[in-house]
């Protein structure tokens, strides 16, 4: 094994002096989760504790990432380290995929199994006759008890012909799809610029990407507002409302996180933290963003269209 070519490259950096960031992370998690729990139990200490926890978490992210970035830029990391980051990010994203899978699974189960069963399919005639009075299965639905009252769904896109504004306002999911797809393109664009060593141009493209993320979130929020105010589609709209908000909301949280990370790497790119050769910080965020993108496509199809 000829591995003596570049001796420096042989040392896999291990922070022997230890680190306090994990402990700070844990304090933050503790505050956040205990605070949230107490909130749910209607204790007035809950909210402050939770916000304090979140603040600690933000501080931790800032400090920890800053330290890692510093180590990376001072050349402590070798190729193996870079590869470790890549593998880790990949597996982390896989864990996120499985997290979403649980909620997609719930949607699929409701549509393919529980709703038809309540409607009497298979050997469930008795369920339908004795308990639900001949209720007919359909989708979307808030269940045989009409949980949360009559509601309307958010259409994936509106009809053309009443002017652009009208169409736009009724096509938020489609618009959001296009926003995210575009953001994927601008992000790759930024990557190419970075690979050419044009950090300034890369930062501009990243800025656009971040802005698209913010726009997406804004539209998503207005969609929710519209759904709550005009459509009576709420978290409490039975199984449709449950799955709709759980999936889109969980995705929205990911977009929020992704957007924050995009903003961070925009700044870092502008500050010249990344080089042609070494920019895992950039790539990790890019992978994450593409993942969030793909999940949205799944949502668009399975939640909005079908």
């Amino acid at each position: 094994m000829a591995h003596s070519a570049e001796n420096n490259q042989d040392i896999y950096y291990v922070p022997h002096e230890g680190s306090l960031w994990p402990a700070i992370a844990i304090v933050g998690m503790f505050g956040t989760t205990v605070g949230a729990s107490m909130m749910m139990n209607e204790s007035s200490f809950g909210a402050p504790l939770m916000y304090a926890g979140i603040a600690v978490l933000l501080f931790m992210f800032y400090g920890w990432i800053k330290q890692v970035a510093g180590e990376s830029m001072s050349g402590l990391y070798n190729k193996r380290m870079d590869l470790s980051f890549r593998w880790s990010m990949g597996w982390f994203i896989f864990s996120e995929v499985m997290f979403f899978a649980a909620f997609f699974g719930a949607l699929w189960y409701a549509r393919a199994i529980s709703i038809p069963f309540i409607g009497g399919e298979g050997n469930n005639l008795a369920t339908n006759l004795f308990l639900w009075d001949g209720w007919e299965a359909h989708w979307p639905t808030n269940g045989p008890a009409e949980w949360g009252g009559i509601f309307q769904t958010v259409a994936p896109w509106g009809e053309w012909g009443h002017g652009f504004k009208e169409w736009f306002n009724h096509s938020l999911p489609l618009v959001n799809t296009m926003i995210l797809l575009t953001s994927g393109v601008t992000l790759e664009w930024a990557h190419h610029r970075l690979l050419q060593g044009k950090n300034g141009r890369a930062a501009i493209m990243l800025g656009i990407t971040s802005a698209l993320g913010v726009w997406f979130l804004y539209l998503q929020a207005s969609e929710y507002a519209h759904a709550y105010a005009d459509l009576n589609l709420t978290l409490e709209s039975g199984i449709y409302g449950s799955t709709f908000y759980m999936l889109t909301g969980f995705h929205g949280m990911h977009v929020t996180l992704g957007t924050i990370m995009l903003i961070v790497i925009t700044i870092r790119t502008a500050m010249g933290h990344f080089s042609k050769e070494q920019h895992f910080g950039f790539e990790g965020v890019a992978w994450y963003w593409h993942f969030v993108d793909v999940v949205w496509l799944g949502l668009f199809i399975f939640v909005y269209i079908l």
Partner: peptide, 27 residues
């Protein structure tokens, strides 16, 4: 993560009015 998803749905069923696991709402 699948376990995390499952218990999250328990939490929203209890505190936020979702009906993943209640037949009346289609769950």
């Amino acid at each position: 993560p699948v376990l995390a998803g499952a218990v999250t749905m328990l939490l929203t069923d209890k505190y936020f009015g979702t009906t993943f696991f209640a037949a009346a709402g289609g769950g």
